[in-house]
Design a binder for these strands. Structure first.
Lengths: 203, 203, 203, 203
DNA sequence: TATGAATGAGTATTCATTCAT
DNA sequence: AATGAATGAATACTCATTCAT
């Protein structure tokens, strides 16, 4: 006899748990969130959570890892559609511009994301995962800049590595600012974007 | 009855505990650090810690608050000695340039600092403290820029508020980058400093 | 409505579950074995197990009880075929000689059996069952010895009760030895058998 | 400042906990006994137990290991005082004769002891401990018999190894019998002792 | 009948905090 | 002031059992 519930059913429950966990983690942080909390929010019992995930940390990891993967895929597929290097970098800026934290919820998600980063920094096991993700994103820009230089779009004097770091510095800087201060996230980031593109553009 | 030990004695013990706690927190994070850990590192017993601080969180707060206060005082007194606005802002950049995380230890301290920020974001009680601190630092630059504009040092078209945010965005961005990626903290920050000063300087 | 499946079908499933449970219990012990374990080994689902047995303990009990019953029947029917008391007792020894634990599996079964004994000792409910079983086996020998004495096969000075106890003491002793020590189970038991028979035989 | 409580105080608490644990384990078995149970019986809180022992299993192990060690020492020192091999073996029998389980309590302790044996059989970690203990006790008799043979006390045809096994088989057999059946532990064991000594004695 | 998702009681263990000495 | 033993609340995780499908 085939399984009593469909694959979809299980998949949806998993998603439900992940979504609930995301909300809990965002609101209270990973440590302060209990498995019961996640259960309550998803309308399940504590025990049921363990039918879908091995541990609280597994949920945390799946959650952030899935987001990362989704982002990677998104970016890769969109990059494929774009021709010029400048437009690719512009596109990346736009992703973060759209995230402008107008609501508390989004701030919470940003906090959650950075907390996960720190969590990884302190975990032997997760450090590699973190590094790999970091390198992927860094190389993405580095290579785009290199291509732009070859294509004559981007100034030859630009240090691809340095400007790749600068890009993420801007994103991190703006994100963090938006947490702790009343901050014109959107305006500042847009301005930073223009400045950045102006700098690298071939004169 | 006079106090059995001098005020200095207590003051020194407090400092010792704070220093030990800083090391523990930096290494393992706030949650993973036990009061016993702090005790062991400071050569005191678990119980004694409570003669000097009300709770583990009180130590955490005092620690970060003290650092903040020290910074505030430092900056204020140094600002008083400096005449030009540009040199004041340059001085602020230099503070962070000197923090270049050449050792793991400094990275840990940066992580600790941001974790504390997130901790505050989730605490009704500590949020105000966080905001006040943020505003102080923000205004510091805003006012300095305003003064520079009046003094004819800084371009009149510069939006003081925006550039104040930009300053801290740079600092946050560079700090975070230095945690998760191999990163030329010093080089990037110096470059950012020059770029920033160039932008605001009256042409 | 007639039963959907035949009685045989159910009977066979029950046997399958019991056999699987025996293997699991022997390998991991009663407590460490989960109902899922039994399910997996028997190719059934956790839930199905409960269609055949009321609880994990019921399986445990049925398992050991069935073994006991089977033994009882076996012994009784074989005793009926044997004429002399000596040959009956010899036959009993042979049963255990055949169990010589040449493989780890048999050791596991022995452990399981004693664990069950201890389990019963601690259960008000099961204690009687244990006692009854003990008495049956004890009386079996006691009566055989009495008959042997009457028939002139066995020495009249032999205390039937004492020697019944001695018989089981030998079996228990040899079995336990075989668990915890490298032990010549077969050789020792054969020697013990000969010694025992020699002692009781009429001179 | 020296520790606030004397070494004796701690030592006594440890003993208290061990004694309480022994009673709990004997009554309910290792698995069914909760750490709270041990706490309640010793008048301590659950948490305090962990000030003295690392885990429930550590208590279990310490308890049985300590008994084993005490026995080893006892036996060794007494053996040193005894001249003849026969008297040594007689002494060993007497130890177990004195343990005659006249009370339920003693039966419980026997059960506990064997449960621990089984516990060890299923634990990679504890198996060696068990084996070592087994070998010590086995060799004790083996060597004593060898010495007796050399001294002309014990029959030269006696297989030392076999009779060492036989000795422990008797002890195990009698002990186990005493658990599950109304049993003349004392009488049977005394009889077994005499028979055993008679067999090995030089004619 | 068969399934396995859902449940929730139960347990070992940790740790901030208190307090007697 | 210093100590560390005592406390007990808190929490992740397990698993026998139930029940809707």
């Amino acid at each position: 006899m085939p399984p009593i519930v469909s694959k979809d059913y299980k998949e949806n429950k998993k998603k439900l748990i992940l979504q609930s966990a995301l909300e809990c983690f965002a609101q209270k942080g990973f440590v302060a969130t209990t498995v019961s909390d996640i259960g309550k929010r998803s309308g399940l019992s504590k025990g049921s959570i363990y039918n879908y995930f091995d541990s609280k940390e597994a949920i945390y990891f799946k959650l952030l890892n899935a987001t990362t993967e989704r982002n990677k895929t998104d970016i890769t597929s969109n990059f494929a559609k774009l021709r010029s290097s400048i437009s690719k970098i512009s596109f990346l800026f736009d992703i973060y511009l759209k995230l402008a934290p107008i609501e508390a919820k989004q701030t919470e998600t940003i906090v959650l994301f950075y907390e996960f980063t720190f969590h990884c920094v302190r975990s032997e096991k997760l450090l590699d995962f973190m590094r790999e993700r970091g390198n992927f994103l860094l190389n993405l820009i580095k290579e785009t800049i290199e291509q732009g230089k070859e294509a004559g779009e981007i100034d030859e004097n630009i240090d691809a590595n340095l400007y790749a770091h600068k890009f993420w510095m801007i994103i991190d800087g703006v994100s963090l600012q938006s947490i702790s201060r009343h901050f014109h996230y959107y305006d500042v980031l847009r301005e930073m974007k223009e400045m950045y593109l102006e700098e690298i553009r071939k004169k």
